[in-house]
């Protein structure tokens, strides 16, 4: 079953001075429960594709469909709801809020929907426990190692229990051992939880985790 799908996805940046065609007619189908990996060199359009899948970039042409409905045809409010509940992002730069503790960072996505405050905290603690961060709950991001920061980011991506994890170079800032570690976590989310994972990366090593592989070059998917 196709969970997430793009059709003729084209994204052109910077109309004013020199256009960049970051994506050029990309049609990609992501099956429910798959671990899809898109590899490509720097500047090939990987991040653009991932953000478009995540409801963060309005394509110039083409569609992104989630369970068959056109994401960018949705009202802004519902698109935000899609980002909040249906997908979780794991990014190369972690993007933790610097003045919030690990647990608070994990709770941010929960602020937007009906969680009771006590429930939020319990859920965040459970997620951090699961990622082996039980003893770092109240640490600020700067008090954590990079590997630990990425674990907090993954816990946050899981906050609202999304079916899809979108990972952009999740190991790009980590050394070999830590990278293997994080890939292990993603694989487990795939195998044990049955979550659908889309990962874009330039690393062939990372790509080995996936069960579906695609290549992106100059915005064209093959």
């Amino acid at each position: 079953m196709i969970l997430l799908e793009t059709a003729g996805l084209t994204k052109v940046y910077g109309r004013a001075h020199g256009e960049v065609r970051a994506l050029d007619g990309v049609s990609l189908a992501v099956g429910q429960g798959s671990f899809t990996v898109v590899t490509g060199g720097s500047g090939s359009g990987k991040t653009t594709l991932l953000l478009a899948l995540g409801g963060l970039i309005r394509p110039t042409e083409g569609q992104v469909r989630h369970n068959g409905r056109d994401l960018y045809g949705l009202p802004e409010r519902e698109l935000a709801g899609y980002r909040n509940r249906s997908v979780g992002f794991v990014l190369q730069t972690f993007n933790l809020v610097p003045y919030l503790t690990a647990a608070e960072n994990v709770m941010i996505p929960m602020l937007l929907n009906g969680h009771r405050p006590g429930g939020r905290r319990r859920k965040a603690d459970a997620l951090l426990d699961r990622l082996g961060m039980a003893d770092r709950r109240d640490f600020l991001p700067r008090e954590l190692s990079v590997g630990q920061q990425q674990r907090v980011a993954i816990a946050r991506a899981l906050a609202n229990d999304p079916g899809i994890i979108l990972a952009d170079e999740p190991t790009g800032s980590l050394d070999r051992a830590l990278a293997a570690d994080i890939l292990g976590v993603l694989s487990e989310l795939h195998r044990k939880d049955g979550r659908t994972i889309v990962m874009v990366t330039h690393s062939n090593e990372a790509a080995a985790c996936g069960d579906r592989r695609h290549r992106l070059a100059g915005g064209v998917l093959s």
């Binding site: 409010r77 935000a80 709801g81 909040n84 993007n95 809020v97 941010i108 996505p109 937007l112 906050a159």
Partner: peptide, 16 residues
Amino acid sequence: KKELGTLITVGFGRRD
């Protein structure tokens, strides 16, 4: 900017 972008990523809408 980066922080607000992060909030938008995790589901903050315009209203939030």
